[in-house]
């Protein structure tokens, strides 16, 4: 399934958190390539730097040093607005705590990235609805997040992540706040997406989820310590 185009290319990425007195080096030189169509699980103990890596991959944060290309586009040193555009076009996020906007409907939540991406209203509505149907929420478009279960909220988040047809779907502990049934639902959706050709990066503690990946990258103390195809 590998190597028909590099989506992510990181070389010697470092991230230092400077909290005034203490400097924490969270990433100590990461070299990582992810190719189109891969489903990569990033695993590692707590505090190893998974979230930090995820934030950098998703252009939510910038590295202290190192080179990063996303979809062939250099990310280092670009303006905030360009970063916003890159996030909008190339990355779909799925967070552990969903991060939906609470006051608006599922449909409107999914429309959000389309709105920022400058998609016209009619097309926005259509695409958002199609995405919600794709994750099995065609009958919940007008529900607000508070009116949905955890699993349903995460499916809205997945629909939102897919709305702009990104280069990569980036998920952080996507099953972390879900019970096992809802969790395995979400895993199935991920597997389906992968089979349909999406490139996925999933940061997780969950061995069950990691097993579904095509490749597992292990991080320990800010370094990649193992990188191998999934056992499954």
């Amino acid at each position: 399934m590998n190597t028909n185009g590099t989506i992510i290319r990181m070389s010697d990425i470092r991230k230092v958190y400077d909290t005034g007195k203490v400097k924490v080096e969270a990433l100590k030189g990461i070299d990582l390539e992810i190719h189109k169509g891969e489903m990569v699980a990033i695993v590692g103990p707590s505090g190893s730097g998974k979230s930090t890596l995820m934030n950098l991959v998703g252009c939510l944060d910038t590295p202290t040093s190192g080179e990063y290309e996303l979809g062939g586009q250099a990310v280092s040193g670009v303006s905030r607005d360009t970063l916003a555009e890159i996030r909008n076009r190339r990355v779909g996020f799925v967070f552990q705590n969903f991060n939906l906007l609470p006051h608006i409907s599922a449909q409107e939540n999914v429309e959000m990235p389309l709105l920022f991406g400058g998609v016209r209203p009619a097309e926005r509505r259509e695409r958002a609805k199609a995405m919600l149907e794709r994750v099995g929420l065609g009958d919940r478009v007008d529900h607000k997040p508070t009116e949905l279960s955890g699993g349903q909220m995460q499916r809205v988040a997945i629909a939102r992540a897919l709305a702009m047809n990104p280069d990569i779907v980036l998920a952080v502990e996507p099953t972390g706040n879900l019970d096992s049934t809802a969790g395995s639902d979400i895993m199935s959706i991920f597997t389906d997406l992968w089979k349909q050709g999406s490139t996925m990066v999933i940061i997780t503690h969950d061995p069950a989820l990691a097993r579904r990946a095509s490749r597992v990258v292990e991080i320990r103390d800010g370094r990649i310590t193992a990188d191998h195809p999934s056992e499954a």
Binding site: D81, N88, N99, F116
Partner: peptide, 15 residues
């Protein structure tokens, strides 16, 4: 938080 979410989804500062 809402601003953060919107920015993650691609909202620019101007918006």
């Amino acid at each position: 938080r809402e601003i953060g979410i919107k920015m993650a989804l691609g909202a620019k500062q101007r918006w």
